[in-house]
Nucleic acid binder design. Structure first.
Length: 438
RNA sequence: GUGGGUAUAGCUCAGUUGGUUAGAGCGCCAGAUUGUGGCUCUGGAGGCCGUCGGUUCGAAUCCGACUAUCCACCCCA
């Protein structure tokens, strides 16, 4: 029973009373990145499982235990996307976008799926906004992408701190991982169980461990930044210099280790301290080997993703303003069948002009219709009855002050004295009134 | 996957040491002279007290399991 009336665990409904916030957010995001040349890409909800194994990484938690994977009726292994980068790159490669002038800039707004235990800021179906900038290896690309996030957050009224790190290229990272293994092996027995395991597979994750013992041991661990090769060091310095030049404030956090395998060099997180434990609201970085690894040309790339649910939570916590929803323009009430038909016709005239108009579809009394009009926040109302039909004239009432203006029922919308014209004039009056007191 | 909290009306919550027909506020519906909203007043609808089992003469109340939900770990956006 309850299975019919309750959504699956970790899913969320956005109800009619809330959706305007999402619409505002999504619009703002796409509009802002458009100023930087990013255009929307739309990709499938599911992909071949292998795509995520190869890009996100076989050893990651996301691939190992969080993916919604199933076999379709054709025997293919299919996975609901756990993130947006893999599908976006696959699409860019498949359709030869990388043969065009570089860089390729794509932005997406999508839902993603991860089988995790839900908590604040974490659900099984969640929504991401992200961008991918493909083809540039220059530090200026890193800086542009990061700056764009700052720009967007400013637009949205969000405060978050930026944390930055470099995890090097495969060459210098290998040396670093070796050094880490040596360091932690000395105290192997004191590490927590998961970290003992990590020691072999992905020693960098030990730095991320929250267990007090591991953290304490990690205090003296070698730092990636000390192992960066010449090229990676230079790149990181340039990124920082660019950010400084653009007056972006950030802190270097040598402990940022992304959980997805494809990252190289620059990695960053935007963190909010107002929304609980799941505090990363935007994360991204460079992935220079990934396109080639997926069968494309040897081109570098950089991108980020942000969780819409977390962004919304942060906005609410920051007291960010959402534009008010547009209210109903006019309610055309009626009593009796003939008047009801006329009301529907007038309502339709207003709608064709682009106004939200309503008439009775519930068979309510006039009083109840007025109450409903009030609830809708209708700016104007009309009541049609037999006498209005006989005289061919009705009154448009401005709900705010009760003032009325007559209009002719049979006038065509373009004619002076028609409902449409009278509504237009009344709006103009209001605007003029609001302006002249200044 | 691990831990802790919670589960009563559409929403937010009361509910005395177990004791008859389970309450409030908001919301919804209908009235307060005949065809006009907001404020006020009156009335009404709406609950298998998360599910199953146990203790008891008697359970919303005590116990257990399950489920859901929230928070945290983990992981990540």
């Amino acid at each position: 029973m309850a299975i019919l009336t309750k959504g699956p665990r970790g899913t969320q409904d956005v109800l009619p009373g809330e959706s305007y916030k999402w619409q505002y957010l999504e619009k703002k995001m796409m509009e802002t990145v458009k100023l930087y040349g990013f255009r929307e890409i739309r990709i499938p909800t599911f992909e071949h499982t292998e795509l995520f194994n190869r890009s996100v990484g076989d050893t990651t938690d996301v691939v190992q235990k969080e993916m919604y994977t199933f076999e379709d009726k054709g025997g293919r292994s299919i996975t609901l996307r756990p993130e947006g980068t893999a599908g976006t790159l696959r699409s860019a490669i498949e359709h030869g976008l990388l043969g065009d002038a570089l860089p390729v800039k794509a932005a997406y707004l999508l839902s993603a799926f991860r089988y995790e235990k839900p908590q604040a800021g974490r659900q099984r179906e969640f929504h991401q906004f992200g961008v991918e900038m493909l083809g540039s290896a220059a530090a200026s690309a890193d800086a542009e992408v990061i700056f764009m996030v700052c720009h967007l957050f400013q637009e949205l009224g969000i405060k978050a701190r930026l944390e930055l790190n470099s995890i090097g290229c495969p060459a210098c990272r290998a040396k670093y991982q070796e050094a880490l293994r040596n360091y932690f092996s000395a105290r192997r027995e004191d590490l927590c169980d998961t970290c003992k395991d990590r020691l072999e597979r992905n020693p960098m994750r030990l730095l991320d461990c929250k267990s007090p013992v591991c953290q304490e041991i990690g205090q003296g661990a070698p730092m990636m930044l000390d192992f960066l090769c010449e090229e990676c060091t230079a790149h990181f310095e340039q990124v920082k210099a660019r950010l400084n030049a653009m007056e972006v404030s950030y802190t270097i956090n040598p402990r940022i280790v992304r959980g997805l395998d494809y990252y190289t060099k620059t990695v960053f997180e935007f963190v909010s301290d107002q929304i609980g434990a799941q505090s990363t609201i935007c994360a991204g970085g460079r992935y220079d080997g990934l396109i080639e690894q997926l069968g494309g040309p040897a081109l570098p790339g950089i991108g980020f993703a942000m969780g819409l649910e977390r962004i919304l939570m942060t906005m609410e916590a920051c007291g960010a303003a959402f534009p008010e929803e547009r209210k109903c323009m006019a309610y055309i009430g009626s009593m009796g069948e003939a008047a009801g038909a006329k009301a529907a016709q007038l309502t339709q005239q207003l709608r064709k002009e682009g106004f939200w108009a309503e008439c009775d579809t519930m068979g309510r009394s006039v009083k109840a219709q007025m109450k409903f009009a009030n609830k809708l926040g209708a700016r104007f109302s009309v009541i049609l009855g037999d006498s209005e039909l006989e005289q061919g004239v009705a009154k448009l009432k401005r709900m705010a002050d009760g003032s009325v203006t007559e209009f002719r029922l049979e006038a065509s919308p373009q004619e002076p004295g028609s409902l449409v014209k009278v509504v237009y004039d009344s709006c103009l009056e209001e605007v003029a009134g609001a302006l002249k007191t200044e």
